[in-house]
Computed example of a mutant assay.
Amino acid sequence: MLVCVTGGTGFVGAHTVAALVREGARVRVLARDPRRVERALTPLGVPADAVETVAGDVTDRSRVEAAVRGTDAVLHAASVYSFDTRRYPELRRTNVLGTELVLDAAVRAGVERIVYVSSVAALYPSADAAVTADSPVGRPREAYMASKAEAEQVARRFQAEGAPVAVTYPPALIGPDDPNLGDQNARLRNELRGLMPMWPLGGFPLGDVRDTARLHARLLLGSGEPTGRHFGPGRYLTTRGYLAEVSAATGRRLPALFLPAVTMLPVGRLVGLVQRVWPWHIPAEYGAVYICSAAAPVAEGESTGGVEPRPLVESIGDTVRWLHGRHLLTNRQAGLAARPLADVGVGPS
């Protein structure tokens, strides 16, 4: 089977490519910079001859059509995931227009297995205590979340028209081998570096990228057409609960001040304005505070494609070990995760 993957040099896309190749699939990656494909996939053990590359952007119709032509399945994972205000101009162009073009090209090419990678954030804020696959699309007051909500409307339109499109809703994702040190792994690193002494009350869903990649591989390579909407494996954590899990994985005490999100949102807006002219990234982002105030758990019984989430303390430990191995954390910052696995009584995942 030949599967086209957009976003294959990103965190979710690269791990999904690796999961597909392990299951015997051939993969074609649409990438703006083909040189990044090998750099993203080699650490995941993907052989170079298992992947072919088409150079192009998801907002270029002709390159998208070339990438999906002759494939058996398509995974659309290309997305700008960032709360950094400097990247706002990219959000709608890539997240919304790119989704429209990729899904349309795949349907027109007669591809029978199409999976669109949405985000659980597309369903926030919710009027209900928990979100389901039938929850209405959210109307968030934050740029990244709003772009994913708009793209979600595009995917649901294709579903309503009878296209063979399945939608997945990954939670915030951590895990090793992140080609670009994305938002959530960077936030974990910043916490361990002591750059996040204040947290908003509230919470967010968290999962392991490897579990979401397994979900995608099942949907793309399983029997029958992939349809419906599926949540990426994970669980909802309060911000206090998140820091407790990080503390358990590292053995470190992580004191923090917890404030109501409503009091931190104005600070986040101010930081966002400063960030537009400040050259270095500022960890206190409006979007991160907003999502903690708007997030809701996933209702029990919702589909995760039969994939059970691994324990979060394991995912956090693996991520911290990877950050430490890349010299992005010191021994002290990584704590227990800087020690060999045998020394802390943890088996490899």
Rank of each mutant, 00 (worst) to 15 (best):
A186M: 13
A186L: 15
L188G: 02
R189L: 11
N190I: 04
N190A: 15
E191H: 13
L192S: 02
L192C: 06
L192P: 04
L192Y: 05
R193M: 09
G194F: 04
L195K: 13
L195C: 07
M198P: 08
M198Q: 11
M198D: 08
M198V: 15
W199K: 06
W199N: 03
W199F: 14
W199V: 10
P200V: 02
G202I: 02
F204M: 13
F204P: 05
P205W: 13
P205Q: 14
P205D: 15
L206C: 12
G207Y: 01
D208K: 00
D208V: 02
V209Y: 03
V209N: 02
V209H: 00
R210W: 02
D211V: 04
T212W: 03
A213S: 00
L215N: 02
L215I: 00
H216C: 00
H216G: 00
A217V: 03
A217S: 05
A217H: 00
R218P: 04
R218Q: 06
L219R: 00
L219Q: 00
L220H: 01
L221M: 01
L221H: 02
L221P: 00
G222Q: 11
G222V: 07
S223I: 07
G224M: 05
G224P: 07
E225V: 15
T227G: 13
T227D: 05
T227L: 15
T227A: 11
T227I: 12
H230I: 09
H230Y: 04
H230C: 09
F231I: 10
G232E: 03
P233E: 12
G234M: 03
G234Y: 01
G234T: 01
R235T: 03
Y236E: 06
Y236W: 11
T238V: 03
T238G: 10
T238F: 01
T239D: 12
R240A: 11
R240L: 08
R240W: 05
G241T: 01
G241D: 01
Y242V: 07
Y242I: 07
L243R: 14
L243G: 03
A244K: 15
A244W: 10
E245L: 12
E245F: 07
E245C: 11
V246F: 06
V246C: 04
S247I: 10
S247Q: 07
S247K: 05
S247W: 04
A248T: 13
A249S: 12
T250S: 06
T250Y: 10
G251M: 06
G251L: 05
R252G: 03
R253M: 09
L254S: 08
P255Q: 11
P255I: 13
L257A: 14
F258R: 14
L259Y: 01
L259I: 11
L259Q: 01
P260N: 03
A261I: 08
V262H: 14
V262Q: 15
T263P: 06
M264R: 06
L265K: 12
L265R: 12
L265S: 11
L265Q: 12
P266R: 12
V267S: 12
G268W: 04
G268H: 03
G268T: 06
G268Y: 07
R269T: 05
R269M: 09
L270G: 10
L270A: 15
